[in-house]
């Protein structure tokens, strides 16, 4: 069995007196493509922030690559595409190449400069997401779907073993969402990158993810996609707190 990449045990997190997450236990193993779903305010983004070390849990433990998060140093093993990626300052004068180069900043380290090899890596990452012809374009001049690809390239350039994406398809049109999922599928299958994807698009996600976690302050479901799709509509509605039907579409 493959190694765990993220492991959370009995994690609780409160914002002042308000419970955000309670008794969270879950694990993602290497090579998995996990979908994280749940209603708004259910704690999905909080969970991501805990994994990224931006928040500290009041109770419980988190391990990344079998290392307690407090001692974890290899942050370049983790790529992150945030919810905010497509709400950045559109007027920022940064080329595609400059944006992707940020993915290597931490890996290159303080007081050091990008080498020719780093520049080649940046171009390779841009090529991988199919955006080579836009290398010298300002990121603000691209469409939402193209920008999202650039942010994926930024996350990929440091060769991460785990890629975390927080609602990356918000504001992206349907056709590009489909292309986006194909890219994720390819990264997972060909480069064995473990994926954790937060999404509201439950239907499309079930076509691609191997595992699913349902979160609404506590864990309501943690299993594989087949088990998830076997859930009845009433189970899902109980979990979301309102009526929900799984609708999947191919385009």
């Amino acid at each position: 069995m493959s190694e765990p990449v993220i492991s959370m045990k009995n994690v609780n997190f409160n914002y002042e007196n308000k419970t955000a997450l309670k008794n969270i236990n879950f694990e993602i193993r290497q090579g998995a493509f996990m979908g994280l779903i749940g209603p708004n305010g259910g704690g999905k983004t909080t969970l991501i922030k805990l994994i990224l070390g931006l928040f500290k849990p009041q109770k419980g433990s988190i391990e990344l690559f079998n290392v307690p998060i407090g001692k974890f140093k290899n942050w370049d093993k983790i790529g992150f595409v945030s919810q905010k990626a497509n709400t950045f300052n559109q007027g920022f004068p940064a080329t595609v190449e400059e944006v992707v180069s940020m993915g290597l900043t931490s890996k290159v380290g303080y007081l050091k400069f990008f080498t020719k090899q780093h520049k080649q890596k940046i171009r390779d990452a841009i090529k991988q997401v199919g955006m080579s012809e836009y290398l010298n374009e300002n990121i603000g001049d691209l469409s939402g779907g193209q920008q999202q690809r650039i942010f994926i390239a930024r996350a990929l350039v440091s060769d991460p073993e785990l890629l975390i994406l927080d609602e990356p398809t918000v504001g992206v049109d349907t056709e590009n969402v489909q292309k986006f999922y194909e890219l994720l599928h390819q990264l997972n299958a060909q480069r064995n990158i473990t994926l954790l994807l937060v999404t509201h698009d439950t239907g499309t996600m079930t076509h691609h993810a191997t595992d699913i976690v349902c979160l609404n302050k506590t864990m309501h479901f943690h299993g594989n996609t087949a088990e998830f799709t076997a859930l009845s509509d009433s189970d899902l509605s109980d979990f979301y707190g309102h009526t929900l039907n799984l609708v999947s579409h191919d385009h």
């Binding site: 942050w75 992150f80 940064a94 940020m102 900043t105 303080y110 930024r154």
Partner: peptide, 22 residues
């Protein structure tokens, strides 16, 4: 010159910079 890449990253996306360990 020494902190150009870190400052550039912080200017573009502070959250991403923090997550990356800057």
């Amino acid at each position: 010159l020494l902190f150009y890449k870190e400052l550039f990253m912080l200017s573009f996306d502070e959250e991403h910079a923090v997550v990356s360990g800057i």
